[in-house]
Simulated scan of single mutants.
Amino acid sequence: MDRDHLNAMSIDELWALHTDVDQALTIKLIAAKRDLEERLDQLGRRADWNEPGKKHH
C-alpha cells in the first residue's frame, strides 16, 4: 500500500485499517509471548536439572 492510496482513504477506511493492523499485531505478539514463555520454562527446567544437590522428581 503506497502513500497515495493511504491519502485517498477516508477517515473511516483508515480507522478500519488501523483496527485490522492492531488485531493482527496483537495476535502475533500473544503467540510470540507464549512461545518465549514456553522456551523460558524449558530453559528453567534444564537449569534446575543441572544444579548440583537439587532433588529431581
Rank of each mutant, 00 (worst) to 15 (best):
G53R: 02
D48R: 08
W15S: 14
E38Q: 15
H5R: 12
K33W: 06
V21T: 02
H56R: 08
D20H: 03
D4H: 07
L6E: 03
D22G: 06
H18L: 03
N50K: 09
L29S: 12
K28C: 06
R45G: 01
N7H: 09
E51C: 06
A31S: 14
N50G: 06
H18D: 05
R34F: 05
D48K: 08
A24G: 03
K28W: 06
A16L: 06
M1K: 05
L17P: 00
S10M: 03
R39S: 14
G44Y: 05
G53F: 02
S10C: 05
L17V: 01
L25M: 15
A24C: 05
L6D: 01
L6K: 03
H5I: 06
G44Q: 10
Q23C: 04
A16C: 01
I11M: 11
D41R: 13
N7T: 02
A16T: 06
L36E: 15
D4A: 13
L40T: 08
T19E: 11
L6Y: 07
D12I: 02
R45M: 05
V21N: 00
R34K: 15
R45P: 00
E37S: 11
R45F: 03
Q23E: 13
H56G: 00
A32H: 11
L36T: 11
A47M: 09
K28V: 13
L43V: 07
G53W: 01
L43K: 11
N50L: 14
Q42N: 11
